[in-house]
Design a binder for these strands. Structure first.
Lengths: 220, 220
DNA sequence: CGTTCTTTTGATGTTTCTCAAGGCAGGTGG
DNA sequence: CCACCTGCCTTGAGAAACATCAAAAGAACG
């Protein structure tokens, strides 16, 4: 019945045997979201761990002045909602599907039982939280210590590394990329133009980027 | 021998019985640091959980351009180093004592054994990491969506709430406060002056702040 | 193939940083 | 107990980076 096997996608459960994974899989609830659909909103009570089975979603906050801040980009195998599995009961951020997206959920109580049964899960969870913490710390530091140009350069290098190619398609609309990097779409557009004029990158299609001089990008 | 009982200070261990806490206490190593002394540096291998028994320390990163970013302010009962108890082996940040400070350490392997023995510890750890994640997300959002003035106002309100008084002493040098809020000492100085001229606060001594109009501060 | 959302480009404005210099405070040694 | 010294804070003037606003061009989608 669970045609998209979320569980096997997630490192969280990777140490479990196939049988055990099947058990986990059987308590999973599936949901499908269309592009632009809200997965959860700030203020919603948070009672389940969410795993992206397929597709893509953005997690963001809204400041009181209405500005958006992109916190995480979730793709297949990523999960969210874990922080609230223990402490607070409310989401403090929003999640929205960026394309048709399949999500698997595990209820709080059931997840807690899983953690009791398989302690390795909580270790994996601690690891993943640590990883995110580290990443967010880095981003915070960058946002307040370096220029948009260097943040953008860093983002391009890292993204190309993730794809394993010099030539890749931005996984985000520039509008969203802007809020991710703590700037505006206009500035992104201008800085990309500047990088191209300086021969560090090439913009082939819309969103299609090719890194020409990685060395120089990393220098920023 | 362990005159400063760190263990009882830390919520991490609060669910343990007194006997169990004694056990934990017996594997703790103490260190003392003087004002300005480095507790750990980026690149150091991270092999212990650190608990502040008394005093205060700042955790910060250094950007490639030499700028400092204050990530956390640790006071008695806070701990750090947990992210590395599982995954990476190197610190990515620095910690420095801001006053004479007593630190208790628990080695990685011993801490892992503790977690095996008392699963409640890992739950507490997950909670605390979640709390920090939430706080850092908020700060990231604020840094890139609102002005220095409103970040500062928010900081003042929150700090006064922590002290439970309208009248309090800043726990940080303005220099450090500046890097915490992602700005410069000069700007902090000017904005505080502005808030005072507008009748929202009063600056009595150096670092001594009195909140006059909390409502208005929260509006920013 | 038109409608809508995104992106680009230009002109302008503002916030905040930078640099420089003077004042203040707190700690140290005489 | 005072005078000094060092680092911290303030204040000003100028510059830079970036945001904002407006409008046109370009994608994406049904």
């Amino acid at each position: 019945m669970h045609q998209h096997n979320c569980v096997s996608l997630v490192p969280l459960f990777s140490q479990l045997s196939e049988q055990e994974q099947d058990t986990v899989n059987s308590i999973v609830h599936q949901h499908h979201y269309q592009t632009g659909e809200t997965i959860f909103a700030a203020g919603d009570s948070m009672d389940a761990l969410m795993i992206i089975a397929s597709g893509q979603a953005k997690v963001f906050q809204l400041a009181s002045n209405g500005k958006e801040q992109l916190l995480h980009l979730l793709t297949a195998g990523d999960f969210d909602g874990e922080t609230a599995l223990f402490s607070q009961a409310k989401h403090n951020s929003f999640a929205e599907a960026l394309m048709p997206t399949m999500i698997c959920q595990i209820n709080r109580t059931e997840f807690q039982q899983l953690m009791q049964k398989y302690p390795t899960i909580s270790l994996n969870l601690l690891n993943e939280l640590g990883r995110r913490m580290t990443e967010l710390e880095k981003r915070t530091t960058q946002t307040s210590t370096s220029s948009v140009e260097s943040r953008l350069a860093d983002y391009l290098v890292e993204t190309s590394a993730q794809f394993g190619k010099n030539d890749f398609k931005l996984p985000l609309k520039k509008k969203d990329l802007a809020t991710y990097l703590g700037t505006t779409p206009e500035t992104i557009s201008r800085k990309l133009g500047e990088l191209e004029r300086n021969g560090l990158i090439e913009q082939t299609g819309s969103k299609q980027i090719c890194i020409v001089d990685q060395e120089a990008l990393e220098m920023l």
